[in-house]
Design a protein around this nucleic acid. Sequence first.
DNA 1: ATGAAAGCGCTAACAC
DNA 2: GTGTTAGCGCTTTCAT
Lengths: 330, 330
Amino acid sequence: MSITIREIAKLANVSIGTVSRVLNNKETGYTEETKAKVLDVVKRYDYIPNSAARALSTQSTKTLGCIIPDICNPFFPELARGIEDMAGSHGYHIFLCNTDLDAQKEESYVYTLLERQVDGLLFASSTATTPKNITRIQKVNKPIILLDACMHDEAIPHVYIDNCFGVYTATKHLIEKGHTSIAFITGSMNLSTSKERLRGYKMALEEAGLPIQEQLITEGDYTVEGGFRAMELLHLQSYTGLIASNDLMAYGVYKYARTQGIRIPEDLSVIGFDNLSFSQIIDPPLTTVSQPAYELGQYAAEMLIKCLQGMDTPSYHLYKPTLIVRESVK
Amino acid sequence: MSITIREIAKLANVSIGTVSRVLNNKETGYTEETKAKVLDVVKRYDYIPNSAARALSTQSTKTLGCIIPDICNPFFPELARGIEDMAGSHGYHIFLCNTDLDAQKEESYVYTLLERQVDGLLFASSTATTPKNITRIQKVNKPIILLDACMHDEAIPHVYIDNCFGVYTATKHLIEKGHTSIAFITGSMNLSTSKERLRGYKMALEEAGLPIQEQLITEGDYTVEGGFRAMELLHLQSYTGLIASNDLMAYGVYKYARTQGIRIPEDLSVIGFDNLSFSQIIDPPLTTVSQPAYELGQYAAEMLIKCLQGMDTPSYHLYKPTLIVRESVK
DNA sequence: ATGAAAGCGCTAACAC
DNA sequence: GTGTTAGCGCTTTCAT
C-alpha cells in the first residue's frame, strides 16, 4: 500500500484538509510556508494521490472513453493520437477500447467505460448496435461524440467527413481519365460510412450517364485480406478502374494484382480512401481520398471537452475530404 | 448521477450487503429467490456498479497499465492487441500510454498509472529513464513486466526477443549472398534493443572476417522518415546490402531508393526487422526478421497476471526471432 | 441468510 | 489559515 494523504498530514503537522488544499492548488486555505512544508513531505515520500478516491469524491475521473473498431488499422492509431494529444493538453486521459466491429464487444466496452466513470465518450465508426449503447450512455447523462459516423438524424454531436463526396470525387476522377467500367469494393455494409461511400460511387456513375453494374460491386471488410478476397470475387469481371473503400483494402488489391501479374496502373487503375502514410510508400504510390485522422481526433476531443466544461459547441462538424493524386491511376 | 447500490437495495427490499453479495457472485449469503429479486431490479434499472468505489474498497482496479513508445508504429498496436486479448480473458482491462520515447512523458504516464491504481504494469521498449520509474513502481509494490527490452542484469521479469541474434542472422544472410559491404541503420541509440541489434550486425561481420566500416553505420529513429534521412547520410558511401533496424525504416529506404532510381534488390539488397504485415505488400516484399508482436504481448500479459495471482512465473522469457526470406535481397 | 456498520482515500463545507 | 467532519459507492466483517 502506498502512503495516503492522512500520513502526509501527520508528517507535515497539518490537517488533511490543508494537504488537500495545497495539492489541489486552491487559491486560498494555506500560507506559502505551510504549502512548502507539505510539498516537501510529498516530495520526500513520493506521495501519489489515489485517483479512485478522488473520483469517488469529485464525481469526475478526468478520463475520456474512446471506442474504435480496430487499432491495427493505422487510421485509428492516428485518430487516437489526435484525441490523446488534445485531451492531454486539457488534463484528460484516454481509455482506449477496440471493438473489432463486434456488437457484443462494443456493448461490453460501453459498460466497462461507464463502470469506470469516464467523463465522456468518443465513438468512432460505430456499428449498428450503437443506438442502443447511446441510449444507455445518455441515460447516465454522459456526453458523447460520434466520430466518422453519419447519423445526421440523431441529435448527437458528431464530427465526420463527407464520405459520399470523397468517393464521388474519386469516381469522377476515374471517369475523367476515361474509365467507363469501374469496380467498387465496399466496407462492412452495416456501417453508415460504408453506405455513404457506396452512394458516392453510384452518384458519380449516374451523373456521367454510366450504368451501375452490380456485379462490379463487392463487399469487403476494411482489411487487406478483405480487399484481396474481394478481388478474387471480381475475378471474372472486366473493368479498368477500381475504387476500394479504404487504403487497407487497396493494399489487398495491390497484393492480388501482383500474384496475377496485373500491372497498376497500366492494366488497372486503383484509388483508395484514408490516405494512410503507407500509401505514399507503396509502389506505385496510391491515389487516395484524404481523411485527416489526427485532426479529426483532435477536433472531436475538443468538442467533447467543451461539452464537459459546459461551453456550447456546434452539434456537428463536417470535413470535406480531398483527392490526393499519385501514381496508381492511368 | 447514476443509480447506486443503496437504491437497488431499497427497491429490492434487501440490504446493500445482500446486493453486493449477489452482484459479486459470492458463494453464499442469499437465497436463489433474493438473488433473482435483486438481479431483476438491477436489470430493470440498468444498474452499473461504480468501479472507483469498488477499487477504493478492494484495492484493486482490475486494470493493467501499458506503456508503449509509439502507437503509430504498427508493431505496437499488435503488441497491444496481444496484451489486451490475454488480459481480457482474465477479466483485466488495459490502460494504454504513448511515450514517444520522451523521458518526461514516460515519467508522467507512470505517475498517472500509479495514481489510477493499476494492478500492474507492462513496459515496452523502455528508454534510459526507465530505471528511475521502475524504482518508483517497485516502491509502491506493483508488479511490472519489461517487454522487448534487454536488462538481464536487473531482477525484473521481462519478455524479449534476441535482438542481437536476429540481426546477426540477417547480416549473415547478406554475407552468404555475397555482399561484402553492408550498411546498417540503427534505432535510437538510447534503447537497449538498438544496441543489441547493432551488436548482432558487428558480430556477423567480424565472424566473416569483414571490416566494420563506421561510415556505413548511421543512426535512425525507427520511423519511415528516419530511414529516409539515414539514406541521405549514407549517400556518398558505396554498399550493396543494407540492414534497417526495423521495417518502418526499411520503408524509408524503399522510398529513398525510388526517388534516386535505385532498384531493390538489383542495386541494393535490404533487410528489415519486425515483419510488419505491410512488409509482404510492399514491392518487392521485404525480407525481414520476424518478431511475433501479438504473442509477445500475450505472453507478457500472462506473466503479469500470474504475478498478480500470486503464482510464480519464470523471471524472463526469450523469443528467438527468425529470418523471413522474401524478395528484397539478391 | 440477512442487516448494520466500519472503512477504503479523498474533497468540500463548515466551524473556528 | 486551519482543523473537523460528512459524505462519495462500494466491500466486508460481525452480529443476529
